[in-house]
Amino acid sequence: MNNDRFIVIDRVSKEFGAHGKSAAVRVIDDVSMKIGRGEFIVFLGPSGCGKTTLMRIVGGLEAASCGQVRLDGATVTGPDRKKGMVFQSYSSFPWLDVIGNIRFGMRFRDDISAAEKERLAQYYLELVGLRGFEGYRVNRISGGMRQRLAIARTLAAGPDVLLMDEPFGALDAQNREFLQEQLVGIQKSEQKTVIFVTHDVEEAIFLADRIMLFSARPARVLQEIRVGDHIGTQRPLAVKSTQAFFALRNSILDVTRRLALQTEKIMLQGGMFPA
């Protein structure tokens, strides 16, 4: 299989159905892109623009109205463990402890033995830095730890692609930065393909190999930014204070500011609200 076309989004559109008098709302408008194996892609765009919906279509959690998504050559028809998902909200199960939640990611795998599952559970526990907390109840650990736990559980399922929906959105600035740095490390060591949705420009630049900048609703790809060409492929935290980082950030912010105004106008005119 061609590694540059690991995920193919092929002319995908999405409309949310007409309810009674209200007409159908188009949230994604004819979006196409190719994503390479191991690539870190960030969907950046204004809130409610449809970028999360597009990611959910890739994950098989939502069906496209038009077009299709192919993962490793196969058309996506529904969710499975090949498309792992990390949600914005805390999605770990409160009735399980930390290690129990990681094990849950492997519960329905029959491709590996029980012993291998246990080894992997310990490995991912270590990888996300939760060693020592394995017996803790989920609501006794911090928000940042819960998101690391969600990442560990998702990785444990052995996905081909990691879909992350503003996973650090609810965290404070320090935690956010810490988790971004950890995520970069994890992605490098695990060689995972990642699609990461955010509206935070700095987060996008710091994490991405490539940023897909989306328009206000309906979502179209406005711009594709190869971040490596601007700030290089190495991402120590210090890269955030380089001249190149600022320059890129400002040029993207320029575009997003105009977008934000545009979105507001659409919302006021059409009475549309984020799905």
Binding site: G59, L61, G78, P79, D80, R81, K83, G84, M85, F87, S89, S91, F93, W95, F104, G105, M106, R107, F108, R109, R153, T154, A156, A157, P159
Partner: peptide
Amino acid sequence: PREYVEVGMTVGAKPSQVLRHIILP
């Protein structure tokens, strides 16, 4: 929560497994 159910589906649980291992607890 919808997220719980979707977590189940994205770690490979079938509907009956989602019912038993997620919805019920």
